[in-house]
Design a protein around this nucleic acid. Structure first.
Ligand SMILES: [Mn+2]
Ligand SMILES: [Mn+2]
Ligand SMILES: [Zn+2]
Ligand SMILES: [Zn+2]
Lengths: 147, 147
DNA sequence: TCGTTATTGCAAATTATTGGCAATAAAAAG
DNA sequence: CTTTTTATTGCCAATAATTTGCAATAACGA
């Protein structure tokens, strides 16, 4: 009922690419992550499953996964790149500056406006980065919550 | 006719802050820059005016300027932080992925939507990052151009 | 003019990420 | 299943951007 479930990881990696034990583990870790971990956090989680995984391999694997379109990387202001599996439907993020919590959202209207603005400037939009920063309104509790 | 022209750099830096020769030069360089240079480029331009300026001082000065709200820093995808003097009116950027050129734009509607989305999620918007990436439409020449 | 102390230059330190290389293990062949 | 080929890994050194320690220096208020 939701798109593309039947393609193997192996296939998605592309020709010439090997499906190693560490890649399987890292892929599992990324898939299972509902938050947006950075490389060392992924390494921590992966090493907990299989200790024979180095941080270098995590970095190299994330790069391969990114090239294969399996994951997306964000910066969220900080110095370390943060990762999430490529979502079925694109979304952007709001970062709670008081807690660091990351909330996902999607605005059809903003998406449309961005493409329109690019076109008006003479460009075809190929990608974008939209991050909102803010603090909770007094009294109100956030609707969604993901770190 | 445009806001706040009468405040001295010295005053804007805040109490306890000294207006040194290198800070004046760096401020001038930033003011004069119509593009979005990174630290070493600013150092290059500043050193051309006054050789007694080190890269360390550029970094430290940019941090002071940022804290004072005199400049803004962007990443534009790359690894080095890029700088521009705080504009009188906020704007966002479109990066030409074929040339690296940076084009500034402002959309009242997107600005409004962002605040609205944050509010709906239970947050007060305090800042945001919006960067569009794209390539020129065949045949059409970009309207504005700044790197 | 002077004294206090913020600021600077220089070099070393940090932090995140990348790259070299020999050892290892997918997966292609036989 | 065994052999062969070579992508991938672990370890560690190398980068790249930015920060920091410290003694020397220069703002600037008294
Ligand atoms: Mn997300
Ligand atoms: Mn700008
Ligand atoms: Zn979006
Ligand atoms: Zn904006």
């Amino acid at each position: 009922m939701s798109g593309e479930v039947g393609t193997s990881l192996k296939a998605r990696l592309g020709a010439g690419r090997r499906l190693t034990g560490q890649r399987k583990v890292i892929a599992d870790v990324v898939q299972a992550s509902r938050d947006h971990p950075d490389a060392s956090e992924i390494h921590r989680r992966a090493a907990a499953i299989d200790p024979r995984i180095s941080l270098s391999t995590v970095y190299r694997t994330l790069k391969v996964f990114a090239e294969a379109g399996l994951i997306e990387q964000h910066s969220f202001g900080g110095p370390r790149a943060r990762v999430e599996r490529t979502p079925n439907r694109h979304h952007d993020h709001l970062i709670d500056t008081t807690t660091g919590r990351v909330i996902e959202f999607r605005s059809e209207e903003i998406e449309r406006l961005q493409a329109e603005i690019a076109r008006e400037l003479g460009y075809e939009l190929t990608g974008h980065t939209l991050e909102l920063y803010g603090h909770p309104l007094r009294g109100k509790t956030a609707r969604t919550s993901k770190s």
